[in-house]
Amino acid sequence: MIQSVRRFATGAAVLLAGLAVPAAFAQASTWTIDPAHSGVEFSIKHLGVSTVRGSFSGVTGTVVWDDKNVGASHVEAVIDAKTVNTGQEKRDEHLKSPDFFDVNQYPTLTFKSTSVKRNGDGKLQIVGDLKLGGQTKPVTLDVDGPAAPQKGMGGKLVSGFSAVGTIKRSDFNFGQKYGAPTLGDEVRFTIDLEVAKQ
């Protein structure tokens, strides 16, 4: 009987340990975005009949994560506009011109969160200010994460987030020489971040 009770207690302890918040997230912690394993992908309609896709690399920034008080979490990210890539060199050069990103005047896009909360489905919703081409507007991101921390190269703990959202070019006065039907107003995007604990 005593042995059965001990086995039950041991099993319960193991189960509770598995359900516990990972130690890396048990308190507020700061994580650095890894630009080598992070990026942004986007898509936009062309002439209303096809979808053009592209990406940005060179994402940097920090994530402050507080699992006990998610609302105290914070994200800041910087995207290198010069890394825009749609697979067509001439189109990419045009996107870097003053008609669109104007990378000489605005070399980066920035995002700073203003609120972080959990949705009913357990996912995160992050609202923040996106600065694009000199215009700053609020955007909403639906986020999966954080992923359970793993040991990366060098022994550092790493985790990850994946976010999706939509912006309207008209909100940012972006590329207005090319309105509908040449280019759609909505730009959909996915952000994938790998972060390392500081």
Rank of each mutant, 00 (worst) to 15 (best):
A23Y: 05
F111T: 05
V40P: 07
G122I: 10
F100P: 09
D80C: 03
K112M: 05
V103F: 01
S113V: 03
G128H: 05
S4G: 07
G71N: 12
E41D: 14
D34A: 06
D99P: 00
H74D: 14
F101I: 01
E89Q: 14
E41W: 01
S57F: 01
G134C: 00
V21D: 10
L109E: 05
K68Q: 12
S50T: 15
D66S: 13
Q105Y: 00
F111L: 01
K82Y: 02
I33T: 07
K96Q: 15
T51S: 13
T60G: 11
L15F: 15
T114K: 00
L130Q: 07
T86Y: 00
F101K: 03
D80L: 02
L130R: 04
G134E: 07
G48H: 08
V84Y: 04
D80N: 12
A72Q: 15
G87W: 02
T30Q: 11
I33A: 06
A12W: 03
H37Q: 10
E76V: 15
G18L: 14
G48I: 07
E89C: 00
V127M: 05
H46P: 02
S43L: 09
S38E: 04
G54N: 09
S115T: 07
V75Q: 10
F100Q: 02
L109I: 15
G54E: 10
L132R: 05
K68I: 02
D34F: 06
S50A: 14
H94F: 09
D121A: 11
K123N: 13
I126T: 13
V52A: 09
A81P: 07
I44E: 02
F42G: 08
L95D: 07
S113K: 02
H74L: 04
A36F: 06
Q3D: 14
T62P: 06
A23R: 10
G120H: 09
E76L: 06
Q27P: 00
A23Q: 12
D66N: 15
Q88A: 14
A28V: 10
W31N: 08
Q27K: 13
G48N: 05
P107W: 09
E41G: 08
V40M: 04
V116L: 10
S115Q: 07
K96P: 13
I44K: 02
L130G: 08
E89L: 03
P98K: 02
V78L: 13
E89Y: 04
L15C: 11
V49Q: 03
T86H: 03
G39L: 00
V84T: 10
Q135R: 13
Y106F: 15
